[in-house]
Design a protein around this nucleic acid. Structure first.
Length: 635
DNA sequence: CAAACCCCGGCTTT
DNA sequence: AAAGCCGGGGTTTGTA
């Protein structure tokens, strides 16, 4: 079944992203139309079996069919056959049986898509079908074939008819949701239905969600309803049902959060916690850990859980964290778990994440989970052992990916405001708070221990892939942060020199070539930053110089020696003036040398630039760097 | 730091 | 029901 496949996929593939959501209904549509109808009689008898099973196991609160006479001797094969026969007869005899044959004929015409049928004819057929269905829908929808007729009807009907179908089926929603065939119809009703129809269905199923979540078909319907077809208000309301029975039936329209309600009395908290726990555990054990609605429920639970509940929760989920990390709610839950986990639990969690390392790092949300690991796991050897080898041959990708780069930026530059917006900072503060009893080391010490593991890999990546990294803004930015990190001088010094040499090598060559790195937006910035000897600080409007590393004047001299032969190579200087991207680098160089007037290289290079005064002046307006350079040379 | 830019969800249109 | 517009939020960029 399509829905089921989709579900398993979702829960086993942690890379699933939003795009896959959209394809849901398409998947079902296909399955509907491509299903082979030739083996109809067999399919039908299966349908009957399924329906019968549903009637017995799921909808115990109603008994449309009186229990069959064969109940007592159900084990006997003969009796079973007999029972089937009875059922079959009853079906053809009852009210809807008469219509079914006609309806199916109409449907055979209606469902063909090749060639596409004219709108008017289709409308006519739809109307005929509707005439026949009206009043007997309830008898049709749980049958394998007839249910699909109604699906097609819903798909092509106008709004009024759809609303009418929806209304007539009102008493059947639960049975539809728990029926192997009916669930598709219910999802179609949600998909094609108006706001009002959706609200009606959601309203009607409210109070039965907890039961549905434990049902093999129902759970998927609830998940789709939650993810795709409900407003945020309705989502909140759905989740409230998991708090407990008293929240399931009455519309508590107060917007109280779970935390506020639990504050009212310890008794309330205990009850809500135990109800949430029950649903969560049942759903996880059913293998539906990847469900988004479940993540939302977990998110509520982690806000109110205490003491032993935390241990049990972590124990339940430690090996399945990978299934949480790709949704916002699940990510929050995963981060909380890691922050709360004791050393032993952390080990289990990390072990289970190891095989998803790359997906974790590059995922929009998973990225924060990785950072949480860096921020809360003291055992740096464990972290390196878990992720080092998984990451090592993918570093270029990881450092240039807009999500995965951040945990690594964190390692080299801490909680830098320019990479963490206030909202994320807030999340991070919550994580820190949770981990204050389980993480013993001071934050910075822990970060530096992880950094120490990663620095050789970082530099190796930069040195072996300089051109590629410079070409990407993210990569170039990372290089800058890495070079300016001097927290572990002994380890970094030589590697840094090697990396800088590589960078200089990379910018040699013919600037007029389009694929020269200088034309990548961040390369001139990086060079300028290295020449200035620090990062620009917007608050103080100054350069924050970094002590103890060979940047600034040292870099500028080296750069001029290597690229312009100390200033002797006039042609190359001219080439750098004439290019609008490289001219800014010269501005940086002249600026820097002005600040070191006594050095011989300073004089030599400034003179070399001065010789090109005419060239500088005649640069067009768009070579803004040349204009700045012109003013600089006057002064 | 501000301006430009991009991405997405919701709403309107045909 | 699909395509296209609009506005909000977040991110990137610009050469201090």
């Amino acid at each position: 079944m399509a829905v089921k496949d989709r579900g398993t996929k979702r829960s086993s593939d942690s890379k699933i992203d939003k795009k896959s959501k959209k394809s849901k209904v398409e998947v079902q549509t296909e399955s509907e139309d491509e299903l082979d109808m030739s083996s109809e009689s067999e399919a039908e008898s299966n349908a009957q079996e399924a329906e019968e099973e549903d009637g017995l196991s799921a909808s115990e609160d109603e008994s449309e069919e009186p229990s069959t006479s064969a109940n007592g001797s159900g084990n006997s094969r003969e009796a079973h056959q007999n029972q089937k026969q009875v059922l079959k007869e009853r079906k053809t005899n009852r009210k809807a049986g008469i219509q079914v044959e006609q309806i199916k004929k109409l449907w055979e015409k209606l469902r063909v898509r090749n060639p596409p049928m004219p709108k008017e004819l289709r409308n006519k057929l739809v109307n005929e079908t509707w005439e026949l269905c009206q009043g007997v829908l309830g008898d049709l929808v749980l049958k394998h074939d007839a249910s699909r007729v109604v699906q097609t009807l819903v798909k092509y009907a106008n709004k009024e008819t759809r609303d009418a179908v929806c209304l007539e089926l009102k008493p059947f929603y639960y049975r539809l949701a728990t029926s192997a065939y009916g669930k598709y119809l219910l999802i179609k009703l949600l998909h094609y239905g108006s706001k009002e129809s959706r609200a009606l269905i959601i309203q009607e199923l409210h109070g039965k969600l907890r039961k549905l979540m434990r049902h093999r078909e129902g759970a998927y319907v609830v998940e789709d309803m939650f993810v795709l077809y409900s407003t945020s208000k309705q989502k909140q309301h759905m989740i409230k049902e998991f708090w407990g029975a008293q929240y399931a039936y009455f519309q508590n329209d107060t917007d109280e959060t779970v935390v506020e309600v639990c504050k009212e009395s310890p008794e309330k908290r205990r009850l809500i916690a135990s109800n949430l726990q029950g649903t969560i555990q049942a759903t996880v054990e059913k293998g539906s850990t990847g469900f988004q609605i479940l993540h939302a429920a977990m998110r509520e639970y982690i806000q109110i859980m205490e003491g032993q509940e935390i241990r049990e929760f972590i124990d339940l989920l430690a090996e399945q964290v990978a299934e949480l990390v790709h949704t916002p709610e699940g990510c929050e839950v995963a981060c909380a778990m890691i922050a709360w986990a004791n050393n032993k639990e952390k080990k289990v969690i990390l072990k289970s994440l190891k095989q998803h390392a790359e997906a974790l790092a590059t995922n929009e949300h998973g990225q924060l989970v990785l950072q949480t690991i860096f921020m809360t796991v003291d055992d740096y050897q464990l972290v390196w052992k878990t992720f080092g080898s998984e990451f090592s041959d993918k570093m270029v990708k990881l450092l240039t990916n807009k999500f995965s780069r951040r945990p690594f930026i964190y390692l080299v530059s801490g909680l830098n405001k320019s990479y963490f917006n206030p909202l994320v900072m807030n999340e991070i503060d919550k994580i820190k708070e949770k981990s204050k009893d389980t993480s013993k080391r001071p934050e910075e010490e822990r970060r530096q221990l992880h950094l120490k593991s990663f620095i050789p890999l970082f530099y190796k990546t930069v040195i072996d892939n300089t051109y590629e990294l410079l070409g990407e803004n993210m990569g170039a930015q990372f290089i800058q942060e890495l070079i300016y990190n001097n927290e572990i001088p002994d380890l970094s010094k030589e590697l840094r020199t090697e990396a800088i040499d590589k960078i200089i090598d990379c910018v040699r060559g013919d600037l007029t070539k389009e694929d020269h790195v200088i034309h990548k937006p961040f390369t001139p910035r990086l060079l300028k930053a290295l020449i200035q000897g620090g990062k620009w600080n917007r608050e103080s409007k100054k350069i924050d110089e970094v002590e103890g590393i060979d940047v600034g004047f040292d870099f500028a001299s080296k750069f001029v020696e290597e690229l312009f032969d100390g200033g002797e190579d006039k042609d190359t200087v001219a080439a750098w003036i004439e290019d609008k991207d490289s001219s800014f680098v010269l501005v940086g160089l002249v600026d820097c040398f002005k600040a070191h007037p006594k050095e011989s290289i300073s004089k030599k290079f400034q003179q070399a630039v001065k010789k090109h005064n005419k060239l500088i002046k005649k640069q067009p307006e768009e070579n803004k760097g040349a204009k700045v350079l012109e003013n600089l040379m006057k002064a």
